[in-house]
Computed example of a mutant assay.
Amino acid sequence: MAISLSKGQKVDLTKGNPGLKNITVGLGWDTNKYDGGHSFDLDSSVFLLNGAGKCESEKDFIFYNNLEGGNGSVVHTGDNLTGEGDGDDEQVKISLADVPASIEKIAFTITIHDAEQRNQNFGQVSNSYVRIVNTENNEELIRYDLGEDFSIETAVVVGELYRHNGEWKFNAIGSGYQGGLASLVKDYGLQA
């Protein structure tokens, strides 16, 4: 049975699941009734971070225009433009053993495409979550439902996988940002 996390909670991933090698990180969301005349496109992005919490290069920023990073250990399965339907809207597949040793953290974010121009924010989004699934048997291991804490934010860091004493753990972050993807890119050490 999946461990359900609350904001700020950290949980062990690999120690409690010995032999866990491949995971799928699923991200999902729904948009509330919105009649602003624009489509509502949310995007998941992944940042591969060194010990200082920064990306070493552009290759460590994984999103709809760069679907693979970490020498192929982290693969984004592609952009979902509408968020329609049940289940995960976007997924990231990770081979834990193949993540380069220089990568200490893997941060998962959701941003609203062109949010400022379209006058959209996370106050118009509901049922956001991140979940980690064992790819081998499709068992959901961890789930974090973000709740309705956001109003004016246009980007959210949902959580991080991080190394601790040779094991992988997950931290449910749930921090909102204004400034969308550009502010995240800058905070993680890249040029916007």
Rank of each mutant, 00 (worst) to 15 (best):
M1H: 13
S4H: 14
L5W: 00
G8P: 00
V11Y: 12
D12G: 15
N17S: 09
N22L: 12
I23H: 01
G26I: 04
L27A: 01
D41W: 06
L42H: 04
D43G: 06
V46P: 03
N50D: 15
C55T: 07
C55S: 10
S57T: 14
K59E: 15
D60P: 08
I62L: 09
I62T: 08
I62R: 05
F63E: 03
F63M: 08
L67Q: 11
G69I: 04
G69P: 03
G70E: 02
G70A: 11
V74R: 05
V75T: 13
H76V: 00
L81P: 10
G87Q: 07
E90P: 01
K93E: 15
I94S: 09
S95C: 15
D98V: 04
V99S: 09
V99T: 05
I112N: 08
D114Q: 14
E116M: 10
E116L: 11
F122R: 01
V125P: 03
R131W: 01
I132R: 06
V133T: 13
N134A: 11
T135L: 11
E136V: 13
E140T: 15
I142A: 06
Y144M: 04
D145Q: 13
D145M: 10
G147Y: 07
F150Y: 13
Y162M: 01
R163G: 05
R163H: 10
H164D: 14
H164L: 14
G166Q: 04
E167C: 05
W168T: 00
I173W: 02
G174N: 05
G174A: 08
S175C: 07
G176K: 06
Y177W: 14
L181M: 13
V185S: 05
K186N: 13
Y188S: 08
A192T: 06
